[in-house]
Design a binder for these strands. Structure first.
Lengths: 211, 211
DNA sequence: TTGAATTAAACAAACGTTTAATTAATTTTG
DNA sequence: CAAAATTAATTAAACGTTTGTTTAATTCAA
């Protein structure tokens, strides 16, 4: 999965990620994790140093970096700026839905906000990603397609907020639209499509002047 | 504050709300709460029965009901359907920003999702509020102002998601826009205005066909 | 044979809750 | 209205668990 991690470490990381996302960091004990992973409790301290550092390891492994995607987008001459943003937004939907468990943890951890290592990590990524996105926005403004005044952090706030809140609202949304008969995979495909289409409407309204 | 609660009970509820929102439910001990409230630890069990029921009491006290607002909106003949929705959205921004602490708790609790009493309470409120909002939407559709097909839960998902995510992103947003010199009150006023304006653009794009 | 991996057990600290005793407030009674 | 009786509020201490981490012994692989 990641360089430098043995099979047992990966097993611990995955089990911890699942349990943290279901019961929260403080609601999960190292005994829970070890037992469900089928590994001795002491191995967590042995491998990672502490429960907190195990959490940090999860964050290092999963944090979302979009610079590569943005670079590819900037060099893609087949796409106009708006469709570059559409593609970027689809990347967000895809990546967040692909690591739902981690992003549920992220959601809580941003509220509770006490581990300085994690706070620092998040601030760095946020700033870096925002600066990448600004490159695309400026391009669209130069070409006269995007509005001169765009509140990019606010736009990203709606993007992440919409996807994240769907993460905790999926069951309700599913039953509201009577999609219980679908398999989880089918439903997830529908959700991703709906989110993408929906956020495209939002982005277009925020970025451009036309209808 | 609420009927049937003594001054000491209110003191416990407020202190608990603050600590839960800062450190999470499992990260806060009853000793923390009691000590910061200046009240003996045993009083929590004495008054509320348990730590869990203290949490439930907070939820009962703070949960957001919008039926009254929607009823007033439906009877307001000075407002067209779109501006009814604008007014409703402003109500959401206002109410959520007014009880930030509670909504941070809500954010976590929806992820961790283990107390059946709270799950039930939330599902009920969500369904009730959505049905209220549908009344306004249908009115706009009858008048030919709103699109025939509107995914109302998805729209509400963006509304709540945008406001909620701003709740955990405010510090970053503030420093990004260099608003550290403002007082907290001034900044909060700006944030509310920005959120309202921003979500109005989103709602208009989702609900109507015009630009 | 050396060093890493793994274990069960032990550690002190912290947890939510209960208890039994005491103080304060309220109600009943003479 | 005061004294007595009753109920409610408050306390410090103790309860049994559970917590994250460490230890010291053992197994495994090189």
């Amino acid at each position: 999965m990641k360089p430098g991690f043995s099979a047992k470490q990966v097993q611990l990381l995955n089990t911890a990620e699942r349990l943290f996302s279901e019961k929260g960091f403080d609601g999960t004990s190292v005994r829970d994790i070890a037992e469900e992973a089928g590994i001795n409790t002491a191995m967590i301290s042995y491998y990672f140093g502490s429960k907190e550092k195990l959490m940090e390891a999860i964050f290092e492994q999963r944090s979302l970096n979009i610079r590569e995607k943005v670079d590819a987008l900037l060099n893609d001459e087949t796409l106009d700026p708006l469709h570059k943003m559409y593609s970027l937004l689809e990347e967000y939907v895809e990546k967040i839905m692909l690591s739902k468990k981690f992003h549920r943890i992220l959601l809580c951890e941003q509220v509770i906000n006490k581990n300085p290592a994690i706070i620092g990590m998040l601030a760095k990524i946020k700033t870096r990603n925002l600066s990448s996105i600004n490159d695309v926005i400026r391009l669209g403004q130069k070409k006269g397609i995007f509005k001169k005044q765009v509140d990019v952090p606010m736009m990203m706030n709606s993007l992440i907020g919409t996807i994240s809140h769907m993460l905790v609202n999926m069951d309700f949304y599913r039953s509201y639209h009577k999609m219980e008969t679908l398999t989880d995979e089918e439903f997830e495909k529908v959700i991703k499509k709906k989110l993408s289409t929906h956020i495209k409407i939002i982005f277009k309204a925020i970025l451009t002047n036309e209808s």
